[in-house]
């Protein structure tokens, strides 16, 4: 098990490094951050001065070596635009996205598992068909569509929620987070509902559930205490794999609701081609994605010894 975890960890580190290097080559090798930051009206002298100041006039390999050495020391450089340390910018933005992600995950699990169990218990009735159709709409409606529609209906028409923004204190942050978190949760909720339904249908037909019923457990108790517990295993694994989408998928949602988290930061940084900021965001995002996948893989290996042999 330890060897498996170590090998998996090495791979995760490799992926983070590869993502960082790929984006480094993209931003510094293909793009021109100096021109992007200073705008089209910058003179040749200004550009030269900017490049000299930020070391952009050095050979690409040297810039790369310097950047990686900095990252290893924990120094992510300073943003081109406002000269702020990248690590400080990320430290203010990341908790906001984590709040959004945590709330979205709660919505996903409550709605997803609830609908999945409900549909499985009402199998082959109109309720089941309706739920399955609903989840199909859920996986087909992209966040920018649901986000804009929710914003219009629930924030503007009904005024139940604020029209975007972050709020001023803890309770206000939460109030502002509900609509974006719900938007972010729809796809995951629909995915979990579909998986939970099919798992439940399978488990409900198994011998041990029949035994539980025969021993006098009520239908609901057999379904929840006996069947749902086992049906949830694959869902838990999927949650680990999907955690990453809550971080990277927040780009669109945060853009719609003007939520100043990592997703919006990523978008701003890429639009402005603010190289140190782009790389910092990619580093943190890739690391989060890998951490989620790693946890999921370890969970799978812990649950299923066969994976350890082959993986």
């Amino acid at each position: 098990m330890t060897r498996y975890v170590l090998r998996r960890l090495a791979w995760a580190l490799f992926v983070v490094w590869a993502a960082l290097s790929l984006v480094f080559v993209l931003v510094h090798g293909v793009g021109d951050p100096a021109a992007a930051t200073l705008g089209p009206r910058a003179g040749a002298e200004q550009l030269r001065e900017f490049r000299r100041k930020h070391g952009l006039d050095r050979p690409l390999l040297e810039q790369y070596a310097r950047y990686v050495a900095g990252v290893v020391r924990g120094d992510l450089g300073t943003s081109f635009r406002d000269e702020q340390p990248v690590s400080r910018v990320i430290a203010t933005r990341l908790p906001r996205t984590l709040l959004l992600g945590a709330l979205a995950l709660a919505f996903e699990l409550v709605i997803g598992l609830g609908l999945g169990i409900f549909a499985a218990l009402r199998r082959n009735t109109i309720w089941d068909t309706g739920t399955v159709a609903l989840t199909f709409v859920g996986i087909s409606a992209p966040t920018f569509v649901t986000g804009l529609v929710f914003l219009y209906v629930f924030a503007f028409l009904y005024g139940w929620f604020p029209v975007g923004g972050y709020g001023v204190d803890a309770l206000d942050h939460l109030r502002h987070a509900i609509l974006p978190a719900f938007t972010l949760a729809i796809f995951g909720a629909a995915t979990y509902a579909r998986l939970m339904r099919s798992e439940m249908v399978e488990v409900l037909g198994s011998d041990y559930v029949r035994t539980a019923r025969a021993k006098g457990a009520s239908r609901l108790r057999a379904a929840l205490a006996h069947a749902a517990r086992n049906a949830m295993l694959p869902v838990v694994v999927l949650v680990g794999l999907q955690l990453s989408t809550l971080v990277s998928g927040a780009i669109i949602t945060e853009q719609i609701y003007a939520w100043p988290g990592m997703g919006r930061l990523a978008f701003e940084a890429i639009s402005a081609l603010d190289a140190p900021l782009v790389l910092g965001v990619v580093l943190v995002t890739a690391a989060t994605v890998q951490a989620g996948n790693l946890l999921a893989d370890i969970a799978i290996a812990a649950l299923d010894p066969r994976v350890r042999m082959t993986g």
Partner: peptide, 18 residues
């Protein structure tokens, strides 16, 4: 494996921006 592990939308918009 590597391609599937990358933050997808991020890489895509960075690529297209560059």
């Amino acid at each position: 494996d590597l391609l599937q592990s990358l933050p997808f939308l991020l890489v895509a918009i960075a690529l297209n921006r560059v």
